[in-house]
């Protein structure tokens, strides 16, 4: 069994996240929660039960004080080119089939078997442990962009897909080309809110979009690239220790190109 082929699209939405600019402030997580109607949790410190479609990891260079350094790594869904989660779903509740290359999640279809969670090495998929019960009145502040999911289904980041649809609608109304949106015409909530602009979002295949070049930068990398899942989310950092934490190099001890599994 040699995995599945990478699915190619004319438009490939992706992110380039500059880890040297992310302060870990959490605005992206908040904006994501607001946009996607995730109910507040009584004990959000139990990270084994939270729903964080966007999660900011803390990376450490593991050096003792005063040489310690940290970096923050926002982790949305990687929207893999060769997703581990899609082929395993028994009921086609997740798919990568639409122009743009976003891995969908169809909540009314999902049976909650969590096989996709077991498949995803990025922990980007979350099981909805409890019904989305908002404190009284707060349901009036629900975003119109994402339906609330019942408990028992798996959910994840979809690059704020409704915004994609709206951007395409807008382009159509304005006589533009919905298949070639301008840079910035479509922007997920996290990228939009980020106060340091650490998240650049756009079409990786479109030379007019900033991400096109940024993803090819010498300091750009993807998480766990050797697993061959071809994430559409890129990271950049000038710090070597940060780049080294993007993948596993234990077998050789050094970073760099090696046999990549596909």
């Amino acid at each position: 069994m040699s995995g599945h082929a990478v699915k190619e699209f004319k438009v490939t939405w992706g992110m380039v996240i500059d880890l040297d600019k992310c302060t870990g402030c959490g605005a992206c997580m908040t904006a994501c929660q607001v946009e996607n109607n995730i109910a507040p949790m009584a004990d959000a410190s139990n990270k084994m039960r939270t729903l964080s479609w966007m999660l900011v990891f803390e990376l450490s260079n593991k050096k003792a004080a005063p040489d310690a350094e940290i970096a923050y790594l926002p982790r949305p869904c990687m929207q893999c080119g060769n997703p581990a989660c899609v082929p395993v779903c028994p009921v086609v509740a997740t798919d990568k089939n639409e122009e743009g290359g976003i891995v969908s999640q169809i909540y009314p279809r999902c049976i909650g078997c969590r096989y996709c969670m077991a498949a995803c090495p990025y922990h980007a998929r979350y099981f909805n442990w409890e019904d989305p019960i908002f404190p009284k009145g707060m349901e009036k502040a629900l975003s119109p962009n994402t339906s609330a999911r019942p408990r028992g289904v798996v959910e994840k980041c979809n690059f704020c897909h409704t915004r994609f649809m709206k951007a395409k609608d807008k382009a159509r109304q304005e006589g533009g080309n919905p298949e070639a949106l301008a840079d910035g015409a479509y922007m997920p909530a996290c990228a939009e809110v980020c106060p340091t602009g650490a998240i650049t979002f756009g079409d990786l295949k479109n030379p007019e979009h900033k991400v096109h070049e940024l993803a090819k930068g010498e300091n750009a990398f993807r998480l766990l690239e050797k697993l061959g899942l071809h994430p559409q989310v890129y990271y950049v950092s000038k710090r070597e220790w940060v780049r080294k934490l993007g993948d596993n190099y234990a077998a050789t001890g050094h970073a760099g190109a090696e046999k990549k599994h596909s």
């Binding site: 402030c25 605005a27 908040t30 607001v34 975003s143 119109p144 809110v193 980020c194 106060p195």
Partner: peptide, 26 residues
């Protein structure tokens, strides 16, 4: 209200929002 985004035209925001104000509607 359901969400807050930055005001790109305002020099204090330039499109950015702090994490607290990002959840202001809630």
């Amino acid at each position: 209200p359901f969400a807050a985004i930055g005001n790109a035209d305002n020099p204090m925001s330039k499109g950015g929002v702090c994490p607290i104000c990002a959840g202001g509607a809630q």
